[in-house]
């Protein structure tokens, strides 16, 4: 018997990068969302390096100038350079979003885990509180909270806390239901039978598998927090001294900017906000598809 060496067809296993790129080509919303986010980040970073941030505050430049070479986005009624205001405003929006979104998700993960993993009375209590608070339009309570604060002392951090106070129920319920379904999987039972403790199971088995859901919950939480803070600031309940984009719109509307022909004053901040919200919504859709492949069939 002779052995004939059959030339093996060279199967090139695609590298991780190729696989990632292939996946991204299918998940267009994730790509577009990330691209917009990248643009916003580079705009902010570049702006913070080149623009004088003092001009984001009143009485620093000539007021009511339309967009020109010197002031690309114009200046407002109070003598703020809108370019500087946008840069600082974007930065502050990022701070509020990351702070409120991050802490909200963290609370959600911790409470969701405790609730689902230990069950019993604690679970009933946490779930009950979440369910009772969910039908209350959180924004109205945020209005009451923001309205009872001393207006002069409101900062972007107070704003983040106000938004956060009533926004942790969503992630808690999401994480809870995910942990509940994961707790019953076989790999958890195997770990339990082989003597892994509660801490080991939570951090070694369940948490790593939950990461896509936590990421999706985080993006959603950032979105919800920014939505609430936009509404608060558009109503004039935000940190009035800061050039937060919602504040700029509120101020422009208060001075009848359109009626007076200063269209650039509210339009540019609104454009920035539209980019922020679209980017987050697109990333959210993309992550949804990543975490929950069943949605992939919608393509």
């Amino acid at each position: 018997m002779t052995t004939i060496a059959i030339p093996q067809p060279q199967v090139q296993q695609p590298g991780r990068l190729t696989l990632l790129l292939r996946y991204l080509r299918r998940n267009k919303s994730l790509v577009f969302g990330l691209l917009i986010l990248l643009f916003l980040i580079s705009f902010t970073v570049f702006g913070l390096l080149t623009v004088d941030t003092k001009q984001a505050y009143p009485l620093s430049v000539r007021s009511k100038q339309p967009p020109s070479l010197k002031y690309p986005l114009g200046t407002d009624f109070f003598g703020r350079n809108l370019m500087a205001a946008m840069v600082v405003g974007l930065w502050q929006t990022a701070v509020i979003g990351l702070l409120a979104g991050g802490v909200g998700t963290l609370i959600g993960v911790v409470l969701g885990f405790i609730s689902a993993y230990f069950g019993g009375l604690i679970d009933a209590l946490i779930k009950g509180i979440c369910q009772i608070l969910t039908p209350i339009p959180a924004f109205l309570l945020q209005v009451v909270i923001a309205g009872s604060l001393d207006k002069r002392s409101v900062t972007i951090y107070t704003m983040a806390v106000v938004v956060l106070l009533l926004a942790w129920m969503g992630p808690t319920l999401v994480i809870r239901s995910q942990v509940l379904s994961m707790k019953e999987r076989q790999f958890v039972s195997v770990a339990k039978l082989s003597g892994v403790g509660d801490v080991g199971i939570i951090f070694g088995e369940i948490l790593p598998n939950l990461l896509p859901f936590i990421a999706a919950a985080f993006v959603n939480q950032v979105f919800v927090s920014l939505f609430a803070s936009l509404y608060l600031s558009v109503l004039g309940l935000g940190p009035l001294r800061e050039p937060l984009m919602g504040n700029l719109i509120w101020a422009a509307q208060g001075q009848s900017a359109f009626f007076n022909g200063w269209w650039w004053w509210p339009v540019f901040p609104a454009l920035g906000l539209v980019l922020i919200f679209s980017s987050l919504a697109l990333i959210n859709m993309g992550l949804d598809e990543l975490a929950n492949p069943r949605v992939r069939r919608t393509e």
């Binding site: 359109f258 339009v267 679209s278």
Partner: peptide, 28 residues
């Protein structure tokens, strides 16, 4: 679907800008 996620108040601002301010079709 692309507009999904944009808060209505921002759409309001752009509608005001294009339809009421630029085209002067509707009140401000």
């Amino acid at each position: 679907v692309l507009l999904q996620g944009v808060p209505p108040v921002l759409l309001a601002l752009f509608l005001l800008f294009f339809i009421a301010f630029r085209l002067k079709l509707l009140p401000l």
